[in-house]
């Protein structure tokens, strides 16, 4: 296969240029693994210490939204992979179409995240002085927008959490730790999504010029790698944050 495209001065061949870009991207992703890894470690240690509070915190999240978002993100990974395929097979028209799908799914994901954050804000679950894990359980179900059934479960769970964790003060502190991690981890993930969305916008504009084909598709491929990586992070965040001790009471 002979490559075309602009050859930068420091390289001898386009093959070398391509190989370099791919290796560089993977090395960058390794740094990302370790970057998120620090946070996963913090999560693991604290969850190990306070399983109850983390369970209570996890059950405060909206499983449906989390599940929907997981599906959205996986679908976006698929469309991203398809845009790489389109470029590799020189379907120049398809590349921007799949990229636009990817971008839309990414934005949907972020939109859902905003809804979730807003909900947590309303439920007094933002770490800080106003944090109150019992807020919803003290309100009528309608105020927190959850079903009576879930509300009842939540009340029981908090009650049991208080007993198991050694009191309300302790539970509240440890649940705040859970929500610190929730916001830290999902926030950092969302930040990566935003960066990815920006890259996608650039990629869409470029691909509409028909720049990417079987001979030259490094940017599509590398941004694809990044996008898939962000997806992988979410694949772990979803069970760790949403599914731990799910209403097991």
């Amino acid at each position: 296969m002979h490559r075309t495209g602009e050859l930068y001065g420091q390289y001898k061949t386009l093959e070398q240029q391509k190989e370099t870009a791919t290796l560089g991207m993977w090395v960058f992703l390794v740094t990302e693994i370790l970057f998120f890894g620090g946070m996963f470690l913090t999560y693991a240690i604290n969850r190990h210490e306070y399983p109850t509070a983390f369970g209570v915190g996890g059950n405060m999240l909206d499983l449906n939204l989390g599940f929907a978002n997981t599906v959205v993100l996986i679908a976006s990974s698929f469309t991203m992979a398809m845009s790489v395929w389109s470029a590799q097979t020189s379907n120049k028209k398809l590349v921007p179409i799949f990229l636009i799908f990817t971008l839309i799914l990414g934005i949907v994901f972020l939109g859902v995240k905003v809804v979730e954050y807003k909900q947590k804000f309303d439920h007094h679950l933002i770490p800080g002085h106003g944090f109150d894990i019992t807020y919803c359980s003290k309100q009528p179900a309608a105020v927190c927008g959850i079903s009576e059934e879930d509300h009842a479960k939540e009340i029981t769970e908090i009650k049991e959490g208080i007993e198991a964790d050694g009191g309300l003060v302790a539970l509240n502190a440890h649940a705040q730790l859970y929500f610190s991690l929730y916001f830290g981890m999902t926030g950092l993930h969302a930040l990566h999504m935003i960066v990815g969305a920006g890259l996608l916008v650039w990629l869409i504009l470029e691909s509409r010029k028909g720049r990417f084909d079987a001979n030259y598709n490094t940017p599509v491929e590398n941004i694809g790698l990044y996008w898939h990586f962000v997806d992988i992070v979410w694949i772990f965040l979803f069970p760790l944050l949403y599914l731990i001790n799910r209403h097991l009471a």
Partner: peptide, 24 residues
Amino acid sequence: MSENGHQEHVVSPKLYATILAALL
């Protein structure tokens, strides 16, 4: 096989769709 020994492999959309299904 290109010169650098890195073969660009094109994965079929069918396989991608299978993976999507598996992930879901």
